[in-house]
Design a protein around this nucleic acid. Structure first.
Lengths: 132, 132
DNA sequence: CTACATGCAAAGAATTTGCAAATCA
DNA sequence: TGATTTGCAAATTCTTTGCATGTAG
């Protein structure tokens, strides 16, 4: 399987570039809007498709906020991890979650579950935002 | 504030009744379909509205699956807790997550976050389903 | 009787998809 | 050139809402 091989295009560069400048999660819609406002031209569908392939290829994390929206973020560490996300500005802090992984896995094992995955995200309002 | 006071109607009874017969999470769409198939008449919007008010009033848990759908479940324990959910049959096992709560809270505190909430769900395939 | 609940269809959002035209390798 | 990628609009899904009518208290 040659898997997905990403081709380097202007729009993909803009997307990953914009994403890397940020420290937090952002929705596809919001990302698209910002790129447009920055004067670049790009289609919303393209943003979705690019983010999707980037997420599969690693390098981009995806989580769902409580409203059910998909949020994306450029992540250097390829390893599995979770975040502490600010619900106002999107600021995301990577969490050391080894203990949680162990907890989740042991529970799954205890009950005989297989093909396990988990969703562990902590939301809140960061100092800067709560100060404002 | 008298808060939301639920009125006992035929459709609400059917909904909570159907929900209580189950051991797992179910989507509003699926729940509606099953009620209809059981020969009862009810509108989809009513299901959504009822589930929503029941969730607020407690007694019903809500989580989002990885596809972004809202899943509901009748829960006796009023206290906050999490689940181990089978992605095939929806079977849900309540988890003792005290340690997780502590973990999440201490992290939030460490970074100065306020108004914190979290999303902790473990998904997988239960023994019965993986055996099939 | 009166406030709240229901139904239905229309409205909204977020995300995906079809397809011809543009573009990277 | 040949395989991807892009754009745009149309199509899908899940969920919410407006409003006239029904109904529990």
């Amino acid at each position: 399987m040659t898997s997905t091989q990403l081709r380097s295009t202007r729009q993909r560069q803009i997307i990953s570039q914009t994403l890397e400048q940020k420290t937090g999660f952002i929705s596809a819609q919001e990302l698209h809007k910002q790129i447009i406002e920055a004067g670049e031209s790009i289609g919303l569908a393209t943003v979705y498709r690019a983010l999707q392939s980037m997420a599969e290829g690693g390098g981009v994390d995806v989580v769902r906020n409580l409203a059910g929206e998909m949020l994306f973020r450029a992540c250097d560490s390829k390893s599995h991890h979770h975040h502490l996300v600010c619900q106002k500005c999107g600021l995301a802090i990577e969490l050391e979650s080894g203990a949680m992984e162990t907890w989740a896995d042991s529970l799954a094992a205890k009950y005989g579950f297989s093909q396990t995955s988990h969703q562990i995200e902590v939301f809140g309002v960061c100092p800067s935002c709560s100060a404002a």
